[in-house]
Write a protein that binds this DNA or RNA. Structure first.
Lengths: 318, 318
DNA sequence: GTGAAAGCGCTAACAC
DNA sequence: GTGTTAGCGCTTTCAC
């Protein structure tokens, strides 16, 4: 493997001169520098990250840890983060599961952005002691070393619920996702508060796990027990779609017999019939803002933290 | 930042003993080892990747470079790769765009799996000199250092086309994706050969770019010029869905007036109306096999390379 | 069973 | 403007 010594030998100079030349140090005159660059190029020399990172004590890399590569929601977010990060010379790496654990522990990245409910608060706080900055997207953590940039779930769901109420619905049920997650909690809270504001009570509540299957299961039970409300506000789109499908298979007309709403505005929301009313998050913009915050954290600047807002997408499902 | 020296100091031993203890070297008696582990734990010591990687000249990491995080096709593939890799103690990192370039050059990973048409053959071959093994998923490269594990596009499209023909279609057109890509070329070749086998000629060909929008555009032109074939075989699902939508908006009935087929079997293929006939690739399995190959390459074993087969999913669109 | 020490490839302070 | 050298944090050889 060719290293800096090889370049120096061929160039007939010391390794420091090579290092300077390759790092555009102004002390090296352009003639020398370009000659050295040429040699490096010819023999295919490229600095080794491990050595450079060890010496410089940073890696110019930001890790984004997500819970899985599936799901329709991460893509725009990652694109947004990536665009902003690379624009400023940073490298973005993405990981899941146990790979994330390893990368975190070994401090492979200078900064970390986490959206992974599988990582416990305890691990998070442990990691935050040896590795900062950390931005977290899927919960709030009471730790000064971790900044949270969750979306404004509360506000968006509040507004969606008000819209539902304005359409005249009264018996409104809520379909939870995984219960203790930040997304679910704050969406539910927004829902409840909007209800309260209009002197309504929650008609019923069900607990799913954010998957379509869990929505289907809930709908089947509702049909069996004949406990159909006028409207079901769901914690996300996938459950809403599962519910709609089963309801329709049993002859219910949506929105005439019962209304359904989702959250996230996944692609399918515009394809299913009827088109699902939902909340759209501009995840690309959200990602960009996250990256901007990360960049400024990396420079140890104090930054005020932005909360991404949702946009109501009212379609045909209620 | 706490390092191995700190642990040694507290334990009252040398750093080599700490290193041995933490790496489960059998020379260190369990009492000593567990005492040292305890201390390391207490003060939050974790070995730094950069230092370990530099010394050991590897990183226990495999990089997967993809063209984007969007698109419905990568998720299962990544899950498959990840499962197998982590099962064997490796860490997987994922990257796109310019981040990939940096990671490749700096040799952040021991092995690389690439599915990114934006990386030129030239770059690929340059990289393959300093960094191996490399597995490539989106093309064939004539270089002994790069092993390709593309899916068997040819065979799957051949079989799909035969099925189309068996249904009685005669005027069959082809809708290309990005033309010089491996996926497109081999699918098209399979299509043509199946036609030839049954003494049929291609009725027409269109060129899209694998996106739904490009499909829509093509369909619009077909309608305007009134050049509608009996059947359009598409290089992927997204174009097929774009074509179907526009055709339907103009009053054509699918499959009665015209048949359409896709490739990839994305989630939407089972949701659109009519449900799209397509080719399913078990990308999770494919990913697992890729990882197995990578693992054996990493151990410098000779490996014979598997070609993942597609499964016909004949639904309602022709 | 434990420790001293070399050295991985690089950057940067310092000397000239 | 260029070279010498220390040292980043770790693993591992070799000596004891």
């Amino acid at each position: 493997m060719v290293n800096i010594k090889d370049v120096a030998k061929i160039a007939g100079c010391s390794i420091s001169t090579v290092s300077y030349a390759l790092n555009d140090d102004k002390r090296i005159p352009e003639v020398t520098a370009s000659r050295i660059r040429k040699i490096a190029d010819d023999i295919g020399y490229l600095p080794l990250a491990a050595a450079r990172n060890l010496k410089k004590r940073n890696s110019n890399t930001v890790l984004v840890a997500i819970s899985d590569f599936g799901g329709p929601v991460y893509h725009e977010l990652l694109d947004g983060i990536h665009q902003e990060l690379t624009k400023h010379g940073y490298t973005m790496i993405v990981s899941t599961g146990s790979s994330t654990d390893n990368l975190l522990k070994e401090r492979m990245a200078d900064g970390t952005i986490i959206s992974d409910i599988n990582i416990s608060n305890q691990t998070l706080i442990q990691i935050s002691k040896i590795l900062k900055p950390i931005i977290i997207l899927d919960r709030k953590v009471h730790d000064t070393d971790i900044v949270d940039m969750t979306i404004d779930n509360y506000d968006a769901m509040y507004r969606l619920t008000e819209d539902v109420i304005s359409k005249g619905y009264q018996k409104i049920a809520y379909c939870h996702g995984v219960k203790k997650t930040h997304d679910n909690e704050y969406r539910f809270k927004g829902f409840l508060d909007a209800l309260k504001k209009h002197d309504l009570n929650i008609s019923d509540e069900y607990v799913g796990n954010f998957t379509k299957q869990s929505g289907s299961k809930i709908a089947k039970k509702l049909i069996k027990t004949n406990q159909i409300p006028e409207m079901i506000v769901c914690s996300n789109d996938e459950m809403a779609i599962g519910i709609m499908e089963v309801l329709q298979e049993s002859g219910y007309n949506i929105p005439n017999d019962i209304g359904v709403s989702g959250f996230d505005d996944i692609e399918l929301a515009s394809y299913c019939i009827p088109k699902l009313s939902s909340v759209r998050i501009n995840r690309f913009e959200w990602g960009r803002k996250i990256a901007v915050t990360m960049l400024s954290l990396l420079k140890k600047h104090k930054t005020d933290v932005h909360k991404e807002q949702g946009e109501l997408k009212i379609r045909d499902s209620y």
